[in-house]
Amino acid sequence: MIKKSLLTALLIIAFANPVSAELSSEQQAAKTQGIIFYNQYKSVSATPFLTIGAEAGDQEAQYYLGESLRRKNHFMNPEARKWYEASAEQGDLYAMIQLGRNDDDLCKKLKNCAPEQKEPVEWLKQAQSIAKPKAENGDAESMYIMYELTVDKNWLKRAAEAGHPIAQYWMGITEKQGEGFFLPWQRQDSIEKWFKASAEGGYPKGMREYAILLGEKNDIEGYRQWNEKSALTGYASTIFEYGSDLAHEPDLYGYPLDVVKGYALIYLLKELDGGGGMQADVKDQLQKISSKITPEQIIEAKKLAETWTATHPPLSFFPEKLSR
């Protein structure tokens, strides 16, 4: 069962940094809404909400505003850089890394960067100087940041062993893709270990991978349990799968047929029209389910979708915090 504290964190974003400025309730609500939109790949919608928190001095809002502006423009424009730098100056390691990774800065292309502007390598060195001591002192997130900074797989493994759910997920993914040296019968056990740990740590993508793995082992009850838990966090991919399962489109895991709830869950995903590439599948699936549902049931399903929205975490793709 997901701990209440973790579920609350998922309403904003997994493993976020501490708040750096005292926000009013209105400013906090705007920041929260902005991050929700960002997690739904709605950068344009996110920008005005995040601007409120960023201008109030909140380093996390500043970081996500920089992210939204960079993603919206497809490059690091001066406004995005300004907010990354504001966040980085308050100690945000993610902002430092994005500034350090930047190879598409508009000012470089125009050859008019400000003379006082730090070089990318300086930001990376600063981030490492902060993260490494914390990582060596046992902080799991700092270990994961060290992996992002160095691409040293040892840091990823250390973060996973220290209980970082995202690191555990990536350990499972990389081993599933063939990395690491194992005896033939050991690899699958290790993959399962990491996905199980990530799932139990509350990471929605880890829950989905663990559900899929259990389904492949013909543990149908295990699949249902973890797929539904992942859907309950608002993760778009598993909501689509859960809704499809309930509507028997197709019937792969023996769920009792519930076309109303199945339609409702797929209908929810129409909201995710800012990116993520789901809309064609959503449209196709709703058409399929419509063939086995009455007009009255569709009305009921849409009301159920409204209730779900009011009583569950917001829909999210749970993108990596350090986007590319």
Score class of each variant (00 low, 15 high):
L69S: 07
L93W: 01
T47L: 12
A54I: 08
R81S: 10
Q59P: 10
L65F: 09
K132Y: 11
M96W: 00
S129M: 05
N112V: 13
I97L: 08
G66A: 12
I130H: 00
A127T: 02
A135L: 06
R81M: 13
E85Q: 10
Y41H: 14
K111E: 15
L106Y: 04
R70N: 11
N112C: 11
A80Q: 03
A131G: 04
R81N: 11
A86I: 05
L99C: 05
N39F: 10
E119H: 09
W83G: 02
W123S: 01
T47C: 12
Y63S: 02
N39K: 13
A131C: 12
N73W: 06
A61I: 05
I97A: 03
N77G: 12
L65M: 08
G57Q: 00
S129T: 11
A127F: 02
W83L: 04
E136G: 08
M96T: 01
L110F: 11
K118L: 14
M96E: 03
K132H: 07
N77L: 10
V121E: 14
I97E: 02
Y38I: 07
K108E: 15
V121P: 04
P115K: 09
Y63D: 00
L50Y: 02
C113E: 03
H74L: 14
Y94P: 01
G91S: 09
E89S: 11
V121M: 10
Y94C: 04
K125W: 05
C107M: 04
Y63E: 01
A56R: 01
P78W: 03
C113L: 05
N137E: 10
D104T: 07
N73P: 03
D105N: 09
N39T: 13
M76D: 06
V44H: 14
E85P: 03
Q117G: 09
H74A: 15
E136N: 08
T51L: 15
V44C: 10
P115T: 06
Y41S: 13
R70P: 05
Q62C: 06
L65C: 10
S45V: 11
I52V: 15
Y63F: 15
R71V: 10
K118Y: 11
L93I: 15
K109M: 10
Y84E: 02
E119L: 12
K108C: 12
L124V: 06
H74V: 12
Q126C: 04
G100A: 04
E136A: 08
M96Y: 01
K108M: 13
L69Y: 04
H74Q: 14
P120G: 05
I97F: 03
E119Y: 07
A127R: 00
Q128G: 11
